[in-house]
Every structure is written in C-alpha cells, then in structure tokens.
Design a protein around this nucleic acid. Structure first.
Lengths: 266, 266
DNA sequence: CGCGGAATTGAAAATACTCAAAATTAGTGG
DNA sequence: CCACTAATTTTGAGTATTTTCAATTCCGCG
C-alpha cells in the first residue's frame, strides 16, 4: 500500500486518506512535478502547456508532509512561500488578542495557501493540517521572477487571488446576513460542490473538521452545529455517521443555502 | 470655489466634500496624472519613480465622476477596469437571491475597487458612491501589459490584492466572533486609522454612510447601531452630531476594539 | 410650516448562547 | 482485541443578546 502510485478513484465517496495515496517517505525524491500531480487542472499551473509547466516545476521547492494538527505556518512568521495543497485538508485561522480563534477557511487539494501574507511580508493567520497532508512549497520570489516571461501564469495567479477575495466576500454575506440554518446549509452545499469539482461524490463525504471547527467558522457554537445536524437528520435531508455526511436531499440543502427554503416559517 | 485647485488642508476634521476639491466640470481635460494626485503615496503608483509613474499615467483611462448614490459597477457586469478612488467614498455590497444586501466594505480615496472581478471576468458585487466622488479608470488588460516591464508595480499590485484578503479576514473575525459593542468599536477605530493615514484627524470625522449601512456592514440592525451610539455617548467615549463623530476617548475605543475592555461585565 | 426620510427609544419576541449532564467516540496501553 | 480514559458530541433547560415591531422625535428641504 505504501508504494502504490498516486491514482484517481472512480468517484469515491470522499478523498482517500493520505496513507492510501502512496506518498513517498519523507525526504525521498518524488518523481513527477506538476504534470504528474492530479491537481494540476485546479492548481496554480492550470492552463499551462507542458513547457511552461516544466518551468514552474523548476522553481517549486520541496514537498512538505504534515501530520494531523501540524502547523504549516504561523501568524507573524516571515513570508517566503506560497503552498499548493497536493492532498489533505487545512484550516486557516485568525487569533484575537484574547486568544479566541476565528477560522477563516477550510482548504483542500489544489488550493493555494498563504496569499494573505504578500501584503505585509508576514503571515496574517495560522494554517494547520486537519489530517495528514502534503503541500508543494512555492518560493514566492522565484514565482515572481517567472511572471515576467509567463503572462498566462501571472493571469492565473491573479485569478486565484481574486477568487480568494470573492470567497471571503461570500463568507461575509453568510456571517452578516444569514441565520444559523442557512449558514450550515451553505457550508454543506459548498463542500459538496468543491468535492464535485475534484471528481468526488456531491452527496457523500467525510467532514475533515470537528463540529467545533465548523461552528467557529460559521460564527456559531458547537451545540448549535450539533442541533442543526440533528434537525437536518430528522427532516430527512442528511444522514450522519460520525464525520461521514450524506446529503439525502441536495436540492433542499441548496434551497436552504440560497434562502429560498427554511425549516421554520420565513 | 468651483475652480479652486486640488489642495491639502492642515489636518481638517474630515476630507472636504467633493465640491470643495475644485474638480473640473465633467468632460474637461484634467491636468496632472498620478504625480499631481494627492493619493499617489497610498494608491497603485505607490513607490514608483517619476518615469514609471508617467508610464502608468499613459494607460490610465478617463477619470469618472459619480454623484451620490450613483453606481460605479454592478454585479455580473463585464470586468474591464479597476478603479482607483481619487476622492469620495464608496460602498461595495453583495446581493442575496432574496434581495438582501450585505455591504462588504466602505472604500475611500487611494483605495482600489474591482479586484474581486478578476477571477470570473465579471463583477461579483455592486459599487455605489456614498457621496460625490471621482475615480480613475484603470483598464486591466493595459495594466497587465505593464506588469512585464514594471516589477515594482506588479509587486505593489499584489500587495494591494493581498491587503484586501487580509482586510476581509479581519471582517470575518469581527462578524464571527465579536459582540455588537466590539464590532462597532472596531468600525470606529478602523475609520480613525484610515483617516489618520490620509492626513486627517484621528478623532473627528464625518460618517459617509447611514446608520443602516453601518449596521448592515457589521451584521447588526439600524436600531442596534443607534443604541450603541447612544451608549457610547452616555459613557463619554464619543460625541455625535448627526453624522459628525468625535472620539472623545480613543484609547477606550481601541481597547473595546481589541477586546480588552467592555461596558458590561465580560 | 409641514412633509418625508432617518434616527432614536421602548417593549416584546426570537434566535442562539451558556451551563450542565449524559452519551458516544477516539485514543492508548495492556 | 479489549478495557479504560480522554475527548468529542448530543441533548436539555434557562438565559442573554440582539431583533422585531411600534411609536416618537429629529432634521433637511421645499
């Protein structure tokens, strides 16, 4: 199992755990670069031809494996790399002076971490692995040196940053305007579509984060999340087994997320 | 008054209204480019030398004046320009299917509008002037063509985008973790520091937005904002006269914002 | 002077939180 | 593999913060 090559499954319920991905032992030379990576259609090299992808490979630093709960970077740490997630899941969070954390996002394979740090040259949040994960280190100054000769790469990089801005605006909408039920439905619908984009099931997946982390992200308490899950279960909209979630009525989840349905009178 | 040249005041309480800024009548040729603009130290050309600034001027389109409540761009509209605010204030907001709006930011002179649209080539939100304002149109494809030869400009553009990501993460922290009182204090402290950065008073300024808009931005109702203002006034922390706000106890406002003080037992 | 939008204030209601206890699950070591 | 312990999750009851609804008040403007 440990030497099995990286592979795609036929729409499994959820991404396989890191251990099943045949990752080489830490420090080993790993064969293919971006071209061999299953995420290259979603990640930074999206849309690049083979030659350009090779150039990008030149500057990409080592791959870094992180165990569950391991920290990728920390607030105020010097910014040197962006990180592309090869597999696994992360959370990013802000810390208030009082020690309270606010999770600002959950990231999965193919997504880029660290873009908030460009502004001040120091990381503005912490990033922690939610499960055993692997990232590609992308030294930012080297990446910048490529931009001059690779406008396609630059353009795509801008799209990624802009996409992050859009994503965050949607979270602001969620936190500022929506009730608990709708927030939770948005959360589920969002996971569903992101897993779909990665070739996994739209209706069945493993939650990589605890109830507490979900609540923190959605501006709710762990008890509220638990109650919402129970309510959704009783309504027959979802089935829940520990962290395995099945969306039994995806259209309803989507309607709740869009605000065109509610379990209580609107 | 109408032909008075653009000028800086000696730390006025608040930016002068647009009418006092000697803006030329619509359609007239306006003299200086970035170099003549009082915002060039904060805006896109930040840190550029005279030559580079001249190059940037070459590609900058017309200036566009907007009356209060006029829309700069609209969701789903084709993205062609970024906009640098010369003077005035804007709000940007997301619309839910149901028609509910969530204000995602208030922007002032020297700030850049439209970066969220790069991702999809269409605007993701609406931008509306809160008072008579003026922006520089920056055709994005022309700007991109400059990036290859002007790494300093590119780097600064990345800082601006990244700064927007950071700003939004802070709003997420606010909306997800803070009570009404702290949210409002953060709002006031933020305005204070942004006006300070522009050479205006840290403690006395005009609110450009209605109570309702403040509430919407902070995830609260207009009534809550009104009550908070009254409470802050009774505590002697602020003086309020219509939209003119004076922060009588800025350290306390900052402490409330940081979460190290509260008017009710924590 | 009076109209209309915006803001303030009060009282009642609702949503989500806190606290507490029980149940379930995960982790660890024998 | 099982037993034990710690951590997480669920559920209930009471509470708090903020919202909603309603009634004034304030202010700009014709």
């Amino acid at each position: 199992m440990m030497t099995m090559p990286l592979q795609r499954y036929d729409r499994p319920a959820s991404p396989p755990p890191a251990a099943a991905l045949g990752a080489a032992p830490a420090g080993a030379v790993i064969a293919a670069g971006c071209q061999g990576c299953s995420m290259h259609k979603l990640c930074l090299p999206m849309g690049l031809d083979a030659g350009a992808m090779g150039q990008l490979d030149q500057i990409i630093g080592r791959r870094r494996r992180l165990a569950r709960d391991e920290r990728l970077y920390k607030r105020d740490e010097r910014f040197t790399n962006l990180y592309a997630i090869r597999f696994g899941h992360f959370k990013t969070f802000q810390l208030q002076p009082g020690g309270e954390q606010q999770i600002t996002g959950f990231q999965m394979a193919g997504e880029l971490l660290g873009m908030d740090a460009i502004s001040t040259d120091r990381h503005a949040c912490d990033a922690v692995a939610l499960e055993d994960s692997e990232v590609c280190e992308i030294p930012f100054t080297l990446l910048e040196s490529l931009f001059g000769e690779m406008p396609t790469l630059l353009r795509h990089f801008h799209r990624l940053m802009s996409g992050e801005i859009m994503r965050e605006q949607n979270v602001m909408l969620l936190l500022g305007n929506m009730r608990a039920e709708q927030r939770f439905a948005v959360f589920l619908a969002n996971l569903s579509s992101r897993y779909t984009a990665r070739g996994y099931s739209a209706t069945s997946f493993q939650l990589r984060m605890s109830r507490e982390e979900i609540g923190n992200y959605l501006g709710l308490t762990i008890e509220s999340i638990s109650r919402l899950l129970s309510r959704f279960r009783k309504q027959g909209w979802v089935a829940v087994d520990k962290r395995e979630v099945t969306l039994l009525d995806l259209p309803m989840i989507r309607a709740l997320a869009a605000g065109t349905a509610a379990s209580r009178p609107m």
